[in-house]
């Protein structure tokens, strides 16, 4: 459908709906339920240089209108992603996929992206400098403009594919970090990753999550996400991928009005495995309701207006 198409860093998407990394695995669980080729694309499970088991359990806690996770980047490592996950994905997903990459040093990021750069299934890199659940890496790169710029430059130099930097909301000044990534050669930015949070079990009187803290996501964080996407989109010229609590077609439109070129759906996939399918199906009706003819016309509508 022509009216849903958007262009993300030079590649046309059939629609702006992208399942977010860590909530969609490598796609197979959802491919059993519906044809995932209806998606704009999806961002696969965060991949690191070495295999990782991640954090001890419990890794999950419920919140009002949301959840906390502290998975800790469990993944089979870049070599197995290339040898096992991508060939399996090819059977069920025929579009370009977004490769989500994480690391514990600048060199890690560059190593993993360089290996994945050879894979023609990959259309974009989403470089996660904002994981709140690992120590000595992840979020520490995304909370400081200089570090974020260093990772951006390192990845930029090893791939010809578009590089999108995924930013953390756990910062005092998102604008300086977004600008630093843009100046370092990023083709886009995506935000927000999860908000650092905690729950405490009244019976044990200890944090619910074994890692003590985790990343808060779900509908409760949508207003924070909208505010930060709006701020970032106002400050940079590169495309912004918006996410954080998006659960329905109306939320997608709101996020695009805040400045997002495409929109990721995260926690919603976990509680409603059909969330993205329903959003894509509902978008035309909701666009009609609000007099939107072509979805790309509303990108940044609330910013420029």
């Amino acid at each position: 459908m022509e009216r849903l198409k958007v262009n993300l860093c030079g590649t046309e998407l059939d629609n702006p709906v992208i399942p977010a990394s860590g909530t969609f695995g490598f796609g197979y669980e959802f491919a059993e339920l519906y044809d995932i080729n209806i998606l704009g694309t999806f961002s696969f499970k965060g991949t690191t240089k070495e295999p990782r088991f991640g954090n001890p359990t419990p890794r999950i806690a419920e919140c009002t209108s949301g959840m906390i996770n502290a998975v800790g980047l469990q993944n089979p490592g870049v070599d197995k992603v290339i040898s096992e996950e991508l060939p399996k994905l090819k059977a069920v997903f025929h579009k370009k996929v977004m490769a989500n990459v994480s690391g514990f040093s600048v060199e890690d990021y560059a190593y993993t992206c360089e290996k994945l750069d050879r894979e023609e299934q990959i259309g974009w890199f989403e470089v996660n400098v904002s994981c709140p659940n690992v120590h000595g890496g992840g979020m520490s790169f995304g909370t400081d403009p200089d570090s974020a710029a260093k990772v951006t430059k390192a990845v930029r130099s090893v791939t010809s594919k578009p590089v999108i930097i995924k930013l953390s909301p756990n910062v005092t000044d998102i604008i300086s970090i977004a600008k630093a990534c843009e100046a370092a050669g990023a083709d886009g930015i995506s935000l927000i990753n999860t908000l650092l949070g905690m729950r405490i079990d009244l019976k044990t009187k200890r944090p619910v999550i074994a890692n003590k803290t985790g990343g808060f996501s779900g509908p409760a964080i949508l207003p924070v996400a909208l505010r930060m996407v709006y701020q970032a989109a106002s400050a940079v010229k590169i495309p912004v991928v918006g996410m954080g609590g998006v659960s329905c077609a109306e939320d997608v439109i709101e996020m695009m009005l805040a400045g997002a070129t495409a929109v990721q759906i995260g926690a919603a996939n976990l509680v409603n495995p059909f969330a993205c399918k329903e959003i894509i199906e509902n978008l035309p009706r909701v666009m009609d309701k609000y007099g939107i003819n072509n979805i790309k016309d509303i990108i940044g509508g609330a910013v420029n207006g």
Binding site: F24, F30, P58
Partner: peptide
Amino acid sequence: ERMGCGFGACMGCS
């Protein structure tokens, strides 16, 4: 185990 999705997507119960 405490689960996020219950169908293998989130890796919450590994």
